[in-house]
């Protein structure tokens, strides 16, 4: 198992974190040592084991269909980095 720079670039794209060459090399090194350690799981046979999705020993609670949230636009956009009273604003998206 070896994570190379190309893989790092791919993951960096998926996770939307830009990584330059130098940091990429360092990350590849870190990730390789972490995955060496993770590979230990391969010692275990798990073919017939049900994966555990949630540890909470309960069933999904259902909410009734009621509108409780009011118009809180001011609160919602208050923290946004680019000022606008009505909208969130981002750099132009080109389709």
């Amino acid at each position: 198992m070896s994570i190379d720079l190309k893989t790092i670039k791919h993951i960096s794209k998926l996770s939307r974190i830009s990584v330059d060459e130098k940091r990429g090399e360092k990350l590849a090194g870190d990730l390789n040592s972490i995955f060496d350690f993770i590979e230990k799981l391969n010692e275990l046979k798990t073919n017939n084991i049900e994966p555990l999705t949630s540890i909470a020993e309960t069933t999904l609670k259902l909410r009734s269909d009621e509108v409780k949230s009011k118009n809180i636009r001011e609160q919602i956009v208050k923290n946004s980095p680019q000022d606008n009273e009505d909208y969130f604003v981002v750099p132009k998206v080109i389709e």
Binding site: K68, S69, N71, I72, Q75, I76, D86, Y87, F88
Partner: peptide, 18 residues
């Protein structure tokens, strides 16, 4: 998954919860 209204045509961002 939230208690915001779903009405069509509301003012922008007025039917948005946290």
């Amino acid at each position: 998954f939230s208690t915001s209204a779903t009405k069509f045509g509301a003012e922008p961002n007025t039917q948005v919860s946290l």
